[in-house]
């Protein structure tokens, strides 16, 4: 008989696999990996800030991720290159976050849980938030799907059909902020990007269209979560890293399959 915390953890992992699987495709297509990395590192300030203000860590992470997304959107290419602005914003947030987390450590924050996730400590309340967030991400992306795909193929092509590429990019960055907010508790600030990139990169090998790549990417993420949880339970390894390691092995296996597309 499976213990309840294992079921909660697996369900939380599956929600993360759903959101990161869909959004991870755009992270790969639009080369937003550094953006994902930056937002997840900055989330440490969000966790510390959220708890210091007596709010949930989810609200704190969401707030900091949204603030950085919007700042980036406003400042983009005005004085510095995108990755420079991103580096300044996110590493500043990381530094302040680490100081805050350290000051509060032992009291309410475990640095290890922040960095590597604490999936086994997911509560039923957390689970509602995580699934709510994941479904919100998937709904928004599905709603904007054809515009997002047109914009990914080309801004000019999208613009000629009345699609505002910049607005769609904002949709992507905000849903990515939400995805990171729900994922940090589960897989940790260091490994969120792994969940965005590895399943989607694996899905690429199996897919011939953007739609099938998104589905394959979610499936690979889900299998990684289930295998990772089972291995972690059996051999007492860290749950978050074990799920990412499972995804990495699936990625390697997919490279052996002869390329069809």
């Amino acid at each position: 008989m499976l213990e309840e915390f294992i079921i909660r953890a697996t369900l939380a992992g599956l929600a993360v696999a759903l959101a990161t699987g869909v959004l991870g495709c755009f992270v790969i297509w639009r080369k937003m990996a550094y953006f994902g990395d930056a937002l997840s590192h900055a989330s440490i300030l969000g966790v510390a800030g959220g708890l210091a203000l007596g709010l949930s860590s989810f609200i704190g992470v969401l707030a900091i991720a949204v603030v950085i997304s919007i700042l980036l959107f406003v400042l983009d290419r005005r004085w510095y290159a995108t990755d420079t602005i991103l580096g300044v914003l996110s590493h500043s947030a990381l530094a302040f976050g680490l100081i805050a987390a350290n000051l509060m450590s032992g009291v309410r924050i475990s640095l290890e849980a922040l960095l590597f996730g604490d999936i086994l400590a997911v509560s039923w309340a957390d689970l509602w938030v995580i699934w709510g967030g994941a479904l919100a991400v998937v709904s928004v992306i599905s709603w904007r799907w054809s515009r997002l795909i047109a914009m990914t193929v080309g801004y000019d092509l999208a613009a000629s059909a009345g699609i505002n590429g910049r607005r769609e990019q904002l949709v992507l960055t905000l849903t990515l902020a939400l995805t990171i907010a729900i994922s940090v508790k589960v897989v940790g600030a260091l490994l969120v990007t792994a969940f965005l990139i590895i399943p989607a990169a694996t899905g690429r090998r199996l897919a011939s269209t953007p739609e099938s790549m998104a589905l394959a990417s979610v499936a690979v993420g889900a299998v990684s979560v289930i295998v990772g949880m089972a291995v972690s339970y059996e051999f007492d390894t860290l749950a978050g890293p074990t799920m990412v390691a499972s995804a990495a092995i699936l990625f390697a296996v997919a490279q052996v399959i002869p390329k069809r597309y």
Partner: peptide
Amino acid sequence: TFPMTVRRFLSLPA
């Protein structure tokens, strides 16, 4: 990195 058949491409944006 972006999988898209020509058939799918013809369905852009609608």
